[in-house]
Amino acid sequence: MSTLHTINKSPSDNTLWQSCLAALLPGDALLMIENAAYAAAQPSVMTQLQEYDIDIYLLSADVDARGLSGKLYTNANIIDDQQFVTLACQHTKVVSWF
């Protein structure tokens, strides 16, 4: 019983991020897609995320597109599209924050 959350906006969308973070439960996973990839380049956001007992993922396509691969402040897992599908299978549902 765990949820894969996806979020697709940069942390500048504060309301969206607060709602998403409030919904996380231990054992959930958070996949930051599209502009949410920018979160991984912001130390304050990543520090905040460390308080949650969750796994954090990024899509390599989004990271590369945005030129972020050398700028990541975290050991968030960078995965490919195939692994996105695997994650969706491993969790009982996928909830999208957009």
């Binding site: 019983m1 949820t3 409030a22 919904a23 996380l24 439960l25 909830v95």
Partner: peptide, 8 residues
């Protein structure tokens, strides 16, 4: 908290 549990 209740919202997180509802989602679960």
């Amino acid at each position: 908290n209740q919202i997180a549990l509802m989602i679960r």
